[in-house]
Structure formats: C-alpha cells, structure tokens
Simulated assay, not measured.
Amino acid sequence: MSLNRRRHATDLETISVTVPEAAVEGYETAISTVCPTVGIFEFDEEERLWRVEGVKDTGHGEEELAAALALAALTTGVTAELERTYTETDGWLARTYESFPAQEVGKRFVVRGSHLDTPPDGNRITITLDAGMAFGSGEHGSTRGCLRALELIAYRKPQRILDLGCGSGILAMAAAALLHRPVLATDIDPWSVRITQENAARNGLSQLIEARLGNGWSTPEIRRRAPYDLVFANILARPLCLMAKDLSRYLAPNGTVILAGLLNTQVRMVLAAHQRCGLVLERHLREGDWGTLILRKPARF
C-alpha cells in the first residue's frame, strides 16, 4: 500500500503561507496542527521569504487551523494570507511521483519511490518509500542531513536506538539497515506510526523496527527503554529546545544524538539549549539552509 493512499474518498487541498524567515517556525507549527507533513521552501532569496505548506483533506480541521494561524500571527507579529490549492487525489499522486526521482544521499544511501522500475543501485543501501503525507522522503535538507550524520557515527555501533518523531520511518529504516540493530520509532501522529510499519515491511525491516504512538519523552515506554546510545530527533527548533533536558537525561554516557528540522539560523539557539544540559557539539552539517547537529554526552556526566 502506498503511503499516499490515505483513506481518501475526498479531494486534497494544499494550504500555504509566505512569510519572512523569522516567522517560519510559528507558521510551520500552525499548519502542522492539521497537516500530517509540512514543507518549507525558499520563495524569495533576496527578500528572505519562505513558503510554508502542507497537504490535508479538503475541509478538515478548519477551526483548529484558524486558531493556530491566529496564534502564529500573534506570536510572530506577522499576519500571513492563507492560500489554498484544491486538487484531486489521483492528480496529486501523479505529480508527486513525477517529482520524486531516486535520491542518492551521502555515500551509503539511495531513497527510491515504489513507482520506479529501474533496478536499484547495488552499491548503496536502498530505502523504498513514497513521498507523501508522512514526513521524510530523502528530499528535504533535514532528512538528508540526518542520513549523512548517521554515516559519520555508524562506526560507534550504537545498540539502543530511538527515532523520536519518526514520520515516514526513513531514519529508523536507515539505521536498522546500516547498523543491523533494532530501532524504536515513535511519533505523536497515529498515521505516521502506521506508515512507518508499512514502510518497514516493504523494506524487509519489520523484525528490527518497532513503531509506537508516543508524545516525546512524556511517553512511559520511551523512558522505560532508556538510556539510548543513539537518538534521532528531526522535529522543529523550539520543541527540540524544550526537550533538551529530557534528552540529556535519557541519553547513555558516550551516547549520540542527531538533531534536525532547524534552519541554520536556528542552530545557535538549539545548540545553546543542549549545551546547557551538558551535551557537546561534534559536527554541524549543512544542507542548503538546513542544519543538522551531531551532539554527544560525555562519558562522565
């Protein structure tokens, strides 16, 4: 089953706003209240304007969306006009397939849609999934940064691995395939949990990946399995800052965390929050405007 075929008897709509960089995070949070995945694209490099957009069922969550947008305007000081583009599901799927060629990432990975007929590259680890309504297809700079970071730290052979906010499950699958270790993949969105399970099965990784519903570190099951040797957290800048203390607490000594979902301009804020909790910066990887941080917990903490 393609992850895009989401119980759609109705049409889809793309909702979007165009805002200055300082307002991106607020509006990304707002749109994510009703959209399972949100994309951020540079709209005007000279003016530093960004387009924040998501795809949802037409008419779904209108009251929640209106309230979230009002809050975003209040907290950012930027009132953005919401744009809507309506499309039939089949038409959206076709355009998605056309714009999703195989993505080579780093030296080890290639991410391919299920619609591709060409043989996979035998020299790379192939992850098969479809770009769609659960975040993570190998195209976005934050996902690519995480995969590159995984390559860099793989020699440490982490045993206990957590993908916090797994989306499509791409990072959990990459870690399981590269390290041959079990991965706990969690997400606050039930649809993402289901998609991760389906993608794990499609890639022959079901025995290594356990996908569970969970709200970050407040989830008892996540805390119970700590400490972790490797944690992926490809989320948003502000939630990352808020979770820094818990992350440090549940990370094993010498454990590694890969943080993403932040613009390079947000790196300093996110890094400072984690350094205050005792974590040490090892690398800052850049994929265009997007930053990925590799941090480590000292052996004696």
Rank of each mutant, 00 (worst) to 15 (best):
V231P: 08
D229Y: 10
V193W: 01
V193C: 05
P253Y: 03
G216W: 09
P239C: 06
Q266L: 03
W290Y: 03
L263A: 03
L259Y: 11
V193G: 04
A211K: 04
R225P: 03
Q275W: 07
T186P: 06
N254T: 14
L247T: 15
T186F: 00
A237I: 03
E282H: 11
A200D: 12
D187Y: 08
F232S: 07
P227T: 10
L213Y: 15
R286C: 04
Y250A: 04
I209W: 13
L271N: 08
D229V: 04
I222N: 13
R212D: 13
Q275A: 05
A211T: 11
G216A: 08
T256K: 00
L247N: 14
N203G: 12
E210A: 05
A200E: 08
D187C: 08
G216T: 10
G291M: 02
Y250K: 03
N264L: 15
C241D: 10
A260L: 09
T265M: 07
V270T: 06
R268L: 08
D187L: 05
W191R: 09
S218G: 15
L263C: 00
D187T: 10
A211V: 06
N234F: 03
F232K: 07
R225Y: 07
N234R: 14
A200Q: 09
L259R: 08
V267W: 04
W191D: 12
R286A: 13
R223I: 00
K245W: 12
L262C: 01
G288Y: 09
